[in-house]
């Protein structure tokens, strides 16, 4: 009887969005009289940080600092339609809608600035700090604050824009299954190292080294949040979680956090996260959806590591001590 070590690898991809159902999201953007920008959506922030990311996307597109953008979301009286926050679609779909709306608003902003500066709008650029400059002659400039005031009180222009992003629904062909389930895919590869106690069947995940390719890390610290939490959830799925421990038997289902097992802060694997960025052709600034796929590769990587450690395959999730011990017993009997 011993503690045995093993390691396993898994590589995966994951689709962004739900093309098999039609996948629209809309956004509205408008400026206040003093050149702050409101983004209006009906998208839901589940904790992943939708509001912050949409603010950064709008700010980048308009050419202002993020703290001049306010996101008002998830009020059906004011926000235009969004399909919802699921299928790794939020950042990609809503982000594209925000870009389109912000571009339209930016164009009006530049037109008003052009009138004030008596130049062509196409000769103007933003400095990202709240000013509009004449290209090649940056001394000739106007603040966005003044442009917005002019638009509201002098020029009678609405600095606003509408955004709509729709990936048309793909209907699978009946006989061949030809379909377009997604327009872009995120990728991952995970290597897990485990220790398995062949006397108790207990698995300890020592390390997980995750490489994720996510298109573009729009806010790296928020990407890290998702990926670290997702990696933890993947390990949790691999070893602990089920509402029906003896499925398909319906009995013994846990009803609270004492019976439904998840690793606590004392059970964490040493976790490494590496991010690659291959911008997607149709993502907002190249982003793909990282929120779901980050919890997938750890499950098979842990399963493969358990085999590497003790030489038994557990092909039923979760990989419980009971299943490992039964498999070891069967192996010994053979």
């Amino acid at each position: 009887m011993a503690i045995r070590r093993g390691r396993g690898v898994a590589a995966i991809n994951y689709p962004t969005g739900m093309n098999l159902g039609g996948d629209p999201t809309q956004a509205l953007v408008h400026s206040t009289p003093t050149g702050n920008f409101m983004v209006t959506l009906s998208s839901v922030d589940l904790g992943q940080g939708m509001k912050q990311i949409m603010a950064q996307i709008c700010a980048e597109t308009i050419g202002v600092p993020t703290d001049r953008v306010v996101v008002d979301t998830a009020d059906t009286d004011t926000g235009p339609h969004c399909m919802g926050t699921f299928a790794s679609r939020g950042t990609h779909r809503a982000g594209n809608a925000v870009i389109q709306a912000a571009r339209e608003a930016r164009q009006v902003m530049l037109e008003v600035a052009a009138e004030e500066l008596e130049v062509n709008a196409s000769d103007l650029e933003t400095d990202g700090q709240g000013n509009i400059l004449v290209k090649g002659a940056p001394q000739k400039s106007i603040s966005i604050f003044d442009v917005a005031l002019s638009a509201h009180f002098k020029r009678g222009r609405s600095i606003s824009g509408r955004g709509m992003f729709l990936i048309p629904r793909s209907y699978p062909e009946k006989e061949t299954g030809a379909m377009k389930p997604s327009t872009c895919y995120a990728h991952a590869c995970t290597v897990a190292e485990v220790e398995v106690d062949d006397e108790t069947g207990e698995v300890t995940v020592l390390t997980v080294k995750n490489v994720f390719e996510i298109g573009r890390a729009l806010n790296p610290k928020m990407v890290e949040q998702q990926l670290v939490g997702g990696s933890w959830m993947g390990i949790s799925h691999a070893l602990y979680e089920t509402t029906e421990p003896y499925y398909p038997n319906r009995d013994h289902g846990g009803t609270d956090f004492n019976q439904y097992l998840m690793p606590g802060p004392g059970d964490l694997a040493e976790t490494k996260i590496i991010v690659l960025e291959r911008p997607s052709a149709d993502g907002p600034y190249g982003a793909k959806g990282p929120g779901e796929m980050c919890a997938n590769p750890q499950i098979p990587a842990v399963a493969n590591a358990v085999f590497d450690a003790v030489g038994v395959r557990i092909d039923t999730l979760p990989i419980t001590p009971e299943r490992i011990l039964r498999a070891l017993k069967a192996q010994a009997a053979n």
Partner: peptide
């Protein structure tokens, strides 16, 4: 370890605990 012990009665489903530690 003392931080982990202190947080062990609190469930977080999003973060994987490490950032909280």
């Amino acid at each position: 370890d003392e931080v982990i012990e202190a947080l062990s009665g609190n469930i977080c489903r999003c973060t994987g605990y490490e950032p909280i530690i």
